[in-house]
């Protein structure tokens, strides 16, 4: 059930968000949020701590209930077919989503098979983040930056159209940041879409910015 990476028609918006509202712990985090994104676009979410960047990413993935509003993918309400929608998403949370006792390559292969893929992109993704020589190290023995690179390689290996990234630059050194920018540029050029919550500019040409927490 690997989601086919078919470049959609460029003129149609890939992702539409209409009038979205979300509550966390009894507090309205945002409301009336609307977005229209075409293929090949990177949206950077900025804003102070607690302004709702992570909540918006989780809401788009339907991990938190929407208080109001609708999310449409290629014109269809994503809540109508959640399993299809989850198949379109590659997720990088603020936690890395890796098993410490498994090796780097095992983590990626298992994550990919849990998504229904065959893991054929894993080795290329490892090479992208210069992890090939760490492939058979247990993740618990890695540094924070190396773990983050592994988590990013997991995103790349998924081949999903929509990347949802929470602070992707966290703990990355300069070469790894460059590798992430290259991977993002490749993903966008092949018709992908990425939404990243970030405090540091991602420096991707043509990126759009949405500042949250500004009333």
């Amino acid at each position: 059930m690997a989601p086919p990476h078919t470049p959609p028609r460029l003129e149609a918006p890939l992702l539409e968000v209409l009038d979205l509202a979300c509550q966390r712990g009894g507090r309205r985090v945002f409301e009336g949020l609307s977005l229209v994104l075409e293929a090949g676009v990177l949206l950077a979410l900025t804003g102070a701590n607690g302004s709702g960047k992570t909540t918006l990413l989780r809401a788009l993935a339907l991990l938190v209930p929407l208080e109001a509003g609708v999310v449409r993918w290629q014109g269809k309400d994503v809540a109508a077919d959640r399993e299809f929608w989850r198949g379109q998403i590659a997720w990088l949370g603020h936690l890395d989503g890796l098993k410490g006792d498994l090796m780097v390559r095992e983590n990626l292969l298992i994550a990919e098979r849990l998504r229904g893929g065959d893991g054929s992109r894993v080795d290329a993704a490892l090479a992208t983040f210069d992890l090939t020589n760490l492939a058979s190290r247990a993740v618990r023995t890695l540094s924070a930056g190396q773990r983050r690179r592994t988590a990013l390689a997991r995103v790349v290996a998924s081949g999903a159209v929509l990347w949802l990234l929470d602070e992707p630059l966290n703990a990355l050194d300069a070469p790894a940041q460059t590798a992430l920018r290259t991977a993002l540029a490749t993903h966008l050029a092949s018709g992908g879409l990425a939404i990243a919550a970030t405090h540091t500019a991602l420096e991707i040409p043509g990126a759009r910015t949405l500042e949250l927490g500004v009333a």
């Binding site: 059930m1 989601p3 993935a61 991990l63 399993e83 299809f84 989850r86 198949g87 998403i89 997720w91 949370g93 936690l95 989503g97 994550a111 849990l114 998504r115 229904g116």
Partner: peptide
């Protein structure tokens, strides 16, 4: 989160 987002 990855299990919650798995397409099954």
């Amino acid at each position: 989160d990855l299990l919650l987002l798995a397409p099954w």
